[in-house]
Design a protein around this nucleic acid. Structure first.
Lengths: 207, 207
DNA sequence: GCCAATTACTACACGGGTGTAGATTCGCAC
DNA sequence: GTGCGAATCTACACCCGTGTAGTAATTGGC
């Protein structure tokens, strides 16, 4: 062999302005996250997934923490937008039973149509570090607040209920349904879950 | 200084037969786990917490995986024992509403009295790897099965309900209450949670 | 076509956890 | 009290991810 080739230089990845690169890195990071969990969400893995070398990631985000922060922000915003679209605000009066069903339906649809966003949000990704729990909890608190408002506005005046705990319960319940839908869709398709939910709600009227 | 002391040998930890050492290591591991999460549950950290050197841990368990497995087994068994004690088996007939309240009360008591066992079981420890989710899910499936049996045995014959989904919901609800109790006891003391729960159940009778 | 700024890559040092081989000490049995 | 086996410790090599300084290629503007 005449030339012991000097470690074959890696072909350059397509160049990209910083902002665009940042978005692409977030996309790559989300793929890694959903596929492998937080435990394997490393700078190395993200760079490999995006087809670039690690310094590119450092130039774009400075480290895993800012990157994760940005990823959580983007994901949170998407999920929150979809969720708040289902909740009437500003003291609008609605029919509670009907709304609870429609909102559940809407949320299950959202989760089903964009699982990459919702799996992390629903806590279905393994290895979540504390920062994830904190941020998720903050978002959930917001949603629970809106749900509680809806309840206060629309519950029969006579009803004595701990609205905050009930809001907690409703949100937890719908979340659990969404988890079932995403993890065992064959066993628990949307129709089954909604029918069961309707059955539970109906107990309130048929003594 | 006459003697440049040769790195001061570490004092020996008290010797212990293997089985006893294993238990002590599990205790240490549980403390580390609850305090720092799965992300910091390393052989090094466990050895330090137990006051021994790493080879002791390797001799006792062979690595982090067998140790974690043993720890999960022990924790799971404790939680499962406490839980199954609350669920009537073998087709015994009971009064459903009363039982649901008593069982919730019992579980909240259990969680409150032994948080080190229940925090991991309730998913309150950060950074759980896939194996934890799998094992927890298996245990939950068992519990849900028993709850579903109770429902089948004691629901009014006329009631048309998706018993499996309802069991899922009940278990998820009580779990959520337990999480609230352990993470925000001042805001959500046991009495408040149980009162709210009773209120929700009561809706079934007061139309 | 060429140049310069921008973007990407190579190469290094570091830190922390893993796993193991071999030396050392403890403490029970006799 | 003294062995001797069991239990513990020391010391090493290894891997993998981090973070950065310096080098090289690309590409848009002229």
């Amino acid at each position: 062999m005449p030339s012991d080739r000097p470690a074959a230089r890696r072909p350059y990845a397509a160049r990209m302005p910083l902002e665009e690169r940042r978005e692409e890195l977030l996309d790559a990071a989300l793929r890694v996250l959903v596929r492998d969990g937080y435990g394997r969400l490393t700078i190395s893995a993200i760079a490999a997934e995006a087809g670039v070398t690690r310094p590119v990631v450092y130039d774009a985000y400075g480290g895993i923490d800012p990157l994760l922060h940005a990823l959580l922000d983007r994901t949170r915003q998407r999920a929150l937008d979809a969720t708040l679209a289902l909740i009437p605000t500003g003291g609008v009066r609605i029919e509670l039973d009907r709304w609870m069903l429609e909102a559940a339906d809407g949320l299950l649809r959202a989760a089903q149509s964009d699982p990459e966003t919702w799996r992390p949000v629903l806590g279905l990704i393994d290895g979540a570090p504390p920062v994830v729990r904190e941020r998720t909890e903050g978002t959930l608190a917001l949603v629970r607040g809106f749900v509680a408002d809806v309840l206060r506005t629309n519950l029969d005046p006579g009803t004595e209920l701990d609205v905050e705990v009930v809001a907690h319960s409703l949100v937890a319940l719908v979340q659990e349904f969404a988890r079932l839908l995403l993890t065992r869709p064959d066993e628990y398709p949307k129709e089954r879950l909604l029918a069961a939910y309707a059955g539970i709600l109906a107990l309130r009227r048929r003594p």
